[in-house]
Design a protein around this nucleic acid. Structure first.
Length: 461
DNA sequence: AAGACGTCCTGCGTGC
DNA sequence: TGCACGCAGGACGTCT
C-alpha cells in the first residue's frame, strides 16, 4: 500500500523519468477515477514542469497552471515505459502518451482517484485543503493539541490524514512499536513527550523507508524497474504469531476500526492475554478460576454465547441472516435439527457465531488492553483466534474422567457431544504455550497453574 | 457530535 | 482440482 515513503519514491522516480516531457494524448479506461469536472483532456499538449508530494497525494504540475492531483490508495501504480504496451492489463486506469514514452496508471482495485485543476489555488481546495502536514512538517505543539483532545485510540489518530498526513496502516504499526506505545491508548491519555516521540519515530521510520525505496508489499511496487526493500525492516506489521525481534514475545494482532493491527504485547506495554482451550469436561473452568484468583479478567465464551441468545438484536440479526431457516422466527429446536441434518448450514451458522464472538473478544481485549486476561474458549482453533491470541493453554483429561465430570454436571447427550469432538493434530499440541493434564487432583492443578502464572510474570520482566 | 457502518473493487485464502 | 464465499483496505459518505 502506498504510504508516504512509497509516494515519495514514485515522485523521485517520475522526476527522473518524465520531467520536461510533454503529454501528447491520453486514454481513459476507468472513467470513475476522475473526481473533477475537468478531465485528462486538459493535460494534452502540456509539459510536465514539476512533481510534488503532499501527504500521500502526488501532484503533477503542468504548463499553463494545469495541475493533476493523484491518490494511489491501495494499489495505484504509475509506471513509465519508453515503449508502448501492446496488450494493456485489466488493471489499467489510464495512459498518458508523452512525446517520449508513456505513463501507465495501473490500479487493480480501482480505489485510486485523480483530480485535474486549472489555476494555482488547488492547494486551498479539497482534497488537498483537508490534508494535514506530514511528520516532517508537523509542529509538535499543534499535533499535541489535536491529540490531547481526541478520544480515539492513538493508531486511529495517527492514520487520520487531517491531523498529520502520510501514515497508513503499515507505518502506523511500525511507528507505535518504535515508540513503545500501545495502538489502543487513547489520545486523551497521551503526554506531550509521547506525541513528541511519535513525531520523531515517524520521521525516523519514514526517512529510513524513503532511503530504501519504500516497501514492496504483496502486489505493491513503486516503479516498474525498482522494488523498495523496507519490507525487510518491518518489526511488527505482517508478523502476527511470530517472535518480537526485541523481546521474543509473540506478536499479536487485533482489528482496530477495520484495520489489522499488529503489536508486541511486551514492548508496547499490554497485559497478558492467554487463551484456554481443551475438550469438553477437561476442566477449563477450574483452570480459569485459578487465573481469576490471581487477578486475571475472565472472558468466558460459553457464557457470552448464552448472553447473545438473550439479546434481541442478536436474534433478529440471525433471523435476517438465515431467513430461509427461521421463517417463523428463531427457534432452538429448528436450529438443532438443521445443524444435524445440513453440514453446510452448520458450517455457515457456526462461522457466523465464531465471527461474532471473535469481534466481541477483539473489542474486549482492546478495551482492557493493559489488563491480564484469560480467555476461556472451547473452540479456539475453529474460531481462528491464533493471531489474536497466540498463546494458548491446552487442558486435557482422560476420557473416563471427562465422562464422569459431565455426568456430575448433569450434562445431556454426552455421547453425542463426545462424538462431535475432533482429535487435535500434533501441530496444535506442539504449539501450545502450556499443556495441563488435569486428572482431577485439585492441589496438583492449583500448583501447575500457579507455576504457569509465575512463569508468565517472570517472562514479562 | 462522534462513532459505527457502508461503499468502492478485485485477488486471494480458506474450506469443503 | 475446482468452486463458492468472504475478507482486506484508504478515505469518504451516510446514518444514528
Amino acid at each position: 500500500m502506498p504510504e508516504l515513503p512509497e509516494v515519495e519514491t514514485v515522485k523521485n522516480t517520475l522526476i527522473k523519468d518524465v520531467l520536461g516531457k510533454r503529454i501528447t494524448g491520453f486514454s481513459l479506461l476507468y472513467k470513475r477515477i476522475m473526481q473533477t469536472e475537468l478531465g485528462l483532456e486538459e493535460t494534452v499538449n502540456k509539459t510536465i514542469i514539476d512533481i510534488k508530494r503532499h501527504g500521500k497525494f502526488l501532484i503533477i504540475n503542468l504548463e499553463d497552471n494545469v495541475n493533476m492531483v493523484l491518490h494511489l490508495r491501495m494499489e495505484g501504480k504509475i509506471f513509465y515505459f519508453k515503449e508502448e504496451i501492446k496488450e494493456l492489463p485489466k488493471s489499467t486506469s489510464f495512459v498518458l502518451n508523452l512525446d517520449q514514452g508513456y505513463l501507465y496508471f495501473f490500479d487493480t482495485r480501482k480505489f485510486a482517484v485523480c483530480y485535474v485543476f486549472k489555476g494555482d489555488d488547488y492547494f486551498s481546495l479539497p482534497p488537498l485543503s483537508l490534508v494535514g502536514p506530514d511528520p516532517f512538517l508537523a509542529k509538535k505543539e499543534d499535533i499535541y493539541n489535536s491529540y490531547k483532545k481526541d478520544k480515539r485510540p492513538v493508531k486511529e489518530i495517527l492514520m487520520d490524514q487531517h491531523i498529520m498526513s502520510g501514515i497508513g496502516n503499515i507505518y502506523a504499526d511500525e511507528i507505535l512499536f518504535s515508540c513503545a506505545l500501545s495502538p489502543f491508548i487513547l489520545g486523551t491519555n497521551l503526554e506531550e513527550k509521547d506525541v513528541e516521540n511519535i513525531i520523531l519515530s515517524a520521521q525516523k521510520i519514514l526517512r529510513k523507508s524513503i532511503e530504501l525505496g519504500g516497501s514492496t508489499v504483496k502486489s505493491y511496487q513503486s516503479s516498474a524497474n525498482h522494488s523498495g526493500s523496507f519490507q525487510d525492516e518491518l518489526k511488527v506489521y505482517g508478523r502476527a504469531g511470530e517472535k518480537c525481534f526485541n523481546c521474543s514475545s509473540l506478536i499479536e494482532k487485533r482489528s482496530l476500526s477495520g484495520r489489522g493491527t499488529s503489536f508486541c504485547p511486551k514492548c508496547q506495554k499490554h497485559g497478558n492475554v492467554i487463551a484456554l482451550t481443551g475438550s469438553i469436561g477437561s476442566g477449563k473452568s477450574s483452570v480459569a478460576q485459578i487465573f481469576v484468583n490471581h487477578g486475571y479478567l475472565l472472558y468466558d465464551c460459553d457464557k457470552k454465547v448464552k448472553e447473545f441468545y438473550q439479546d434481541k438484536k442478536f436474534i433478529s440479526e440471525i433471523e435476517k441472516k438465515f431467513k430461509d431457516v427461521f421463517k417463523g422466527g428463531f427457534n432452538k429446536d429448528v436450529l438443532l435439527s438443521k445443524m444435524t441434518s445440513s453440514p453446510s448450514f452448520r458450517r455457515k451458522y457456526e462461522n457466523y457465531i465464531f465471527h461474532y464472538i471473535k469481534e466481541d473478544i477483539n473489542s474486549y481485549l482492546i478495551e482492557n488492553y493493559s489488563k491480564n486476561i484469560i480467555v476461556e474458549v472451547p473452540r479456539f482453533f475453529d474460531a481462528n483466534l491464533k493471531l489474536m491470541i497466540p498463546r494458548y493453554i491446552l487442558v486435557r483429561a482422560d476420557k473416563k474422567i471427562r465422562y464422569n465430570r459431565l455426568i456430575k454436571r448433569g450434562q445431556k447427550n454426552i455421547d453425542e457431544m463426545l462424538k462431535l469432538e475432533k482429535d487435535l493434530d500434533k501441530k496444535k499440541i506442539e504449539q501450545a504455550f502450556f499443556i495441563i493434564d488435569n486428572d482431577g487432583d485439585k492441589i496438583n492443578l492449583e500448583n501447575k497453574v500457579k507455576e504457569i502464572i509465575s512463569y508468565i510474570e517472570e517472562e514479562k520482566k
